[in-house]
Simulated assay, not measured.
Amino acid sequence: MDELELMITVVVAADDDRAARRACQSLLHRVGGRIVECGDCSDEEPGCWSVTISLPASSSGAGPAALSRAVRTFLRELGPEFPRHRVSCESPTAWSVVDDPELVEALVPGGERLLVEAWVGDAGAPVFADEDPDLLPPPEPEPGLADVDEHGRVRPRLGMVVDVVTQRHAAAEWPARAVASRVSRSVTLLGSAERPPMVRVEWDLGPAEGEPAEIVADAVARLGGVGWSRPRAGASVATARWSAAPTPPSGIAAIELTSTVPSMVDSGTPHWNTGSVS
């Protein structure tokens, strides 16, 4: 039987990283697990932070039914009002969004929304590095890394494009965001586009240290798995791509990582134009 992992993401109003983590302590004590990510999402909602908790699901299994059951079981454990929220499934993940500030506030002071995801590591998407002890991830990127280094050089930026097979545009962002969050603490949605039968979702993962080829190689190592293309690298850009073969009937079908050295616009600030989503 496949072991399932739960990823619990809370959107919480907080002043900073420390306050956001502190607000989630009561939920941690209640459900267990550990905080694996805390990110500033004020670009989407001013004054908001997202805190992600990882913990093993209380059930195991394979297929959409097992994934959905893991989410429903967790919702029931939170209280009688939580199971009424809809559970969606696009293999290899199932999820439910609790968009009820009063309900979430009872769990997390300042909490506004709750996302509950169930994942199985070997169901078509790459095996994530932190799920495989043989794949050691590179060090966490420095929080708040500046666009320009101490010598005044513009740091390369890392971008990710995720293709999700789904009939509903809205169903593509959550699984794509979960993949992007495995690579960077700084995840900004750039856009999405329907390319039937897929939805393409593009992310800016922020500045990174090193040369473009090194940055892409580190990101590939962090995601792990097999099926990655040989990296293509030039002086100012590097790219690697993963794709499922054959294309799954639903879920994540392809991932592209690109590291680019931005140009400098007249204002003297870095400018990165990906042009991938149209």
Rank of each mutant, 00 (worst) to 15 (best):
4 L>K: 00
6 L>C: 05
7 M>F: 15
7 M>K: 07
12 V>L: 01
16 D>I: 06
17 D>Q: 12
18 R>Q: 14
22 R>Q: 11
22 R>P: 02
23 A>W: 06
25 Q>I: 06
29 H>E: 15
36 V>K: 13
36 V>A: 12
46 P>W: 06
46 P>C: 09
49 W>R: 02
50 S>L: 12
52 T>W: 05
52 T>D: 06
53 I>F: 10
53 I>Q: 05
57 A>Y: 03
59 S>V: 09
62 A>V: 05
69 R>L: 01
70 A>D: 08
73 T>V: 10
73 T>R: 05
73 T>N: 06
73 T>A: 12
77 E>S: 13
78 L>S: 00
78 L>R: 00
79 G>H: 05
81 E>K: 15
89 C>E: 04
89 C>K: 01
90 E>M: 14
93 T>G: 07
99 D>H: 14
106 A>C: 08
106 A>F: 01
107 L>N: 10
108 V>A: 00
109 P>T: 03
115 L>A: 02
116 V>F: 05
116 V>Y: 00
117 E>D: 15
119 W>E: 06
124 G>R: 09
128 F>L: 07
128 F>I: 04
131 E>C: 04
136 L>W: 13
136 L>N: 13
143 P>D: 06
143 P>G: 13
144 G>P: 03
145 L>S: 11
145 L>I: 00
146 A>W: 15
151 H>W: 11
153 R>N: 13
153 R>A: 13
156 P>M: 09
158 L>K: 08
158 L>T: 03
158 L>Y: 02
158 L>F: 02
164 V>K: 01
165 V>G: 04
166 T>C: 12
172 A>H: 13
174 W>T: 14
178 A>V: 02
180 A>K: 03
181 S>Q: 05
184 S>V: 08
184 S>K: 05
186 S>W: 04
187 V>R: 03
188 T>F: 15
190 L>N: 11
196 P>Q: 12
197 P>K: 12
199 V>M: 12
199 V>W: 01
201 V>K: 05
201 V>F: 06
202 E>R: 11
203 W>M: 02
203 W>S: 06
204 D>K: 06
205 L>E: 01
207 P>F: 02
209 E>F: 06
216 V>L: 04
216 V>E: 10
217 A>Q: 05
218 D>H: 02
226 V>Q: 15
227 G>Q: 07
227 G>L: 07
229 S>A: 06
236 S>M: 10
239 T>Q: 12
240 A>C: 10
242 W>N: 03
246 P>S: 03
247 T>W: 12
248 P>V: 04
249 P>W: 04
249 P>Y: 14
249 P>G: 07
251 G>L: 05
251 G>A: 14
252 I>P: 01
255 I>V: 10
256 E>K: 12
261 V>W: 04
263 S>T: 15
264 M>V: 13
264 M>I: 09
265 V>D: 15
268 G>H: 10
270 P>Y: 01
271 H>Y: 06
274 T>V: 07
275 G>A: 11
275 G>D: 14
